[in-house]
């Protein structure tokens, strides 16, 4: 359980980091809470780790002056979880943070790290889809919906670094719901569903597909919650594993969609 040997660089600017990433099989180290276990298991054995933890100015939650937020990619989960501004503007994200791992992991793990790792059962990638986030990198701005290409696979180029997450404002009166089922508090979701309801519904399933997935057929059926919950079951393609069969996960997606939509509708009405 020890990682293979690697070289280590801790650049102090993004330009330096990007230059270092030009090399073959270099890997970015952010908070390390997903990468280091993979290194310890030797599922990955990069020859170079580029630690971006010493680059200043990537750790912030800022008002964008338009009702949204800008979040620096190296902002730690614990900072996101405890931000009053974020709780006021995006209560659904605040609620979902309660399900992200455990205290010691949240103290070190970063929002950008989780998004770039792209675990399909992680909460944050799904929340970015739900909130229609824009992901700013050293090269461009990518819509969250275009960011995930497969399990642990993103649209990022080898030498591209995520720097900022832009959350556009939610329309006033938007209701929300977030429902997760996990075997143990803080574990990865067996499945989770997030929903927002304003003029229209937006629904995202987590842990039930190779990427986080918007359930567009279910969205189109809202306000018929029962029909939406039925449709949700058919939209996902979950895997079987020792924690639950694909059928069981489909069932969960359906039930959690119903619950999330009911909470969201209630919140929108009040």
């Amino acid at each position: 359980m020890k990682p293979a040997a690697f070289e280590y660089l801790a650049p102090v600017s993004l330009a330096e980091a990007v230059a270092a990433l030009g090399r073959d099989d270099a890997k970015i180290l952010a908070g390390g809470q997903s990468l280091v276990p993979m290194l310890n298991f030797r599922l990955r054995a990069p020859s170079l780790l580029v630690d971006i933890g010493r680059i200043p100015g990537l750790d912030y939650i800022e008002d964008d002056r338009a009702g949204g937020l800008r979040i620096g990619a190296m902002t730690r989960h614990h900072t996101v979880e405890t931000s009053d501004l974020l709780r006021q503007r995006f209560p659904v994200l605040h609620a979902a943070m309660q399900y992200v791992a455990h205290l010691a992991i949240r103290n070190k793990g970063t929002i950008g790290g989780s998004l770039c790792h792209g675990d399909p059962a992680a909460e944050l990638p799904g929340l970015m889809l739900l909130l229609d986030a824009r992901l700013k990198t050293t090269q461009r701005t990518i819509a969250a919906e275009d960011f995930y290409e497969g399990a642990l696979d993103t649209a990022l180029a080898e030498d591209e670094i995520l720097t900022e997450i832009l959350l556009p404002p939610l329309p006033a009166g938007t209701g929300w719901g977030f429902e997760e089922f996990a075997r143990r508090s803080g574990d990865f979701a067996l499945t989770a569903v997030g929903a927002t309801v304003g003029e229209e519904a937006r629904i995202v399933a987590i842990g039930a597909h190779e990427t986080p997935l918007r359930l567009r057929a279910a969205e189109a059926l809202f306000p018929d919650i029962e029909a939406a919950a039925e449709a949700a079951r058919e939209e996902v393609s979950p895997n079987d594993d020792l924690h639950g069969s694909a059928d069981y996960r489909r069932h969960l997606v359906s039930v959690l969609t119903r619950h999330a939509l009911m909470s969201a509708r209630e919140g929108a009405a009040s």
Binding site: M1, Y8, A10, L29, G32, Q33, V36, P37, N40, F41, D51, G53, H78, H102, L103, A104, I105, N107, K108
Partner: peptide, 25 residues
């Protein structure tokens, strides 16, 4: 692998897993 918590230490005031942090960091 960051699951058990036995290696938890306090780093700059926050509890962290010392198995998921390299000494160089």
């Amino acid at each position: 692998q960051g699951v058990c918590g036995a290696c938890t230490v306090i780093l700059n005031g926050d509890s962290v897993r010392s198995c998921l942090c390299f000494a160089v960091q």
